[in-house]
């Protein structure tokens, strides 16, 4: 298991390098540049700015300089946001985004699995019958609709929770955004859990377990649930990508000072260093999430660990 984990972690570095390389060149190939829009600058000022940020050098030289700086932990300075170091911008926003993402992930996975199990325990019961239509509605509604809707009900009418905004050390601020972000996740996971559990419960080894008189609870928790969760775990990789992109919208809707907005701003303003910083952060997160999913998979199914490559 440990050898498998180490091999997989070592595999992340080259993937990340490829991701950074492709992003580095693609964003520079896109039309326009950092100082092309916004204010009308004289040709001379623009040339001076470009020279200051090293943008007048050939691309391979810029790329080598970027990698060298990166190796020293220097992500560069933002072009558009008052010359702030990108590392500082991310350092300020990431805790908020990470808290939101983690909360949504835990909420979505736990409630999804619980609902899926509930539906299977009582076939044809309330949860089982309500699950499919509810999941369809939840998945169809974009979060810029569900977010304001939740804010309207729980913030304005019931006045239980703040409508928007964020203060440090006030978890209440994150409740509605986390729920908004978690809803589609919970819906998908509930459906996957239900389907997976129904399939494993009809497996031959479940019959053997029942024939041993192990009792319903033991059969469900020890024999059926682990294999049933394999599809859920496989979905965690794509789920991480969803959380990253979904957080852009949710952070905007609920006015959270997270990092999501930097990705949008950076892309629009052609703020190369900011975009590269965000690609590095979100790329690492996504790869780690996929790695975590694979390690969980190996834990669920011992055969995976010994599989030849």
């Amino acid at each position: 298991m440990l050898g498998y984990a180490l091999r997989r972690i070592a595999g992340i570095v080259p993937v990340l390098l490829i991701l950074l390389t492709v992003s580095f060149f693609v964003i520079r190939l896109a039309p326009g540049g950092p100082f092309a829009s916004a204010r009308a600058l004289s040709a001379r000022t623009r040339a001076e700015l470009r020279a200051r940020y090293g943008l007048d050098r050939p691309l391979p030289v810029q790329y080598a300089a970027y990698l060298r700086a990166l190796a020293h932990g220097d992500l560069g300075r933002s072009y558009s946001l008052r010359d702030e170091p990108v590392a500082a911008l991310i350092g300020a926003g990431l805790p908020v985004s990470a808290e939101l993402g983690a909360a949504a992930l835990v909420l979505g996975v736990l409630s999804g699995i619980a609902l899926g199990i509930g539906a299977v325990l009582r076939r044809g019961g309330l949860i089982d019958r309500a699950l499919a239509p509810l999941a369809a509605v939840t998945l169809a509604l974009p979060s810029f609709v569900t977010g304001p809707l939740l804010a309207l009900v729980f913030g304005l009418w019931l006045r239980w929770l703040p409508v928007a905004g964020w203060q440090p050390d006030t978890p209440r601020d994150l409740v509605l955004p986390a729920i908004t972000l978690a809803l589609p996740l919970a819906a998908s996971i509930a459906r996957l859990t239900r389907a997976g559990l129904l399939e494993t419960l009809s497996a031959s080894y479940i019959r053997t377990a029942r024939a041993r008189g192990l009792g319903r609870a033991r059969v469900l928790w020890h024999h059926a649930l682990r294999p049933a969760l394999v599809p859920v775990v496989s979905y965690l990789g794509p789920a991480a990508t969803y959380l990253v992109t979904g957080s852009l919208v949710v952070e905007t809707v609920f006015e959270l000072p997270g990092t999501g907005r930097y990705l949008v701003m950076g892309a629009i303003d052609r703020d190369y260093t900011l975009v590269m910083g965000m690609v590095l952060v979100y790329g690492t997160l996504t790869l780690l999430a996929n790695l975590g999913a694979d390690l969980l998979h190996a834990w669920l199914d011992p055969r995976v660990r010994h599989e030849p490559e």
Binding site: A203, S204, Y205, I206, R207, T208, A209, R210, A211, R212, G213, L214, G215, R216, H222, H223, R226, P227, L300, D301, P302, R303
Partner: peptide, 25 residues
């Protein structure tokens, strides 16, 4: 009631030995 008998008083062996054991335990 059946669980008190199955596995204790009555043992069962099923046909397919490949699928009859829980793979992850």
């Amino acid at each position: 009631t059946l669980d008190a008998l199955r596995g204790r008083r009555i043992g069962v062996v099923f046909q397919d030995p490949m699928g009859a054991l829980t793979p992850h335990l």
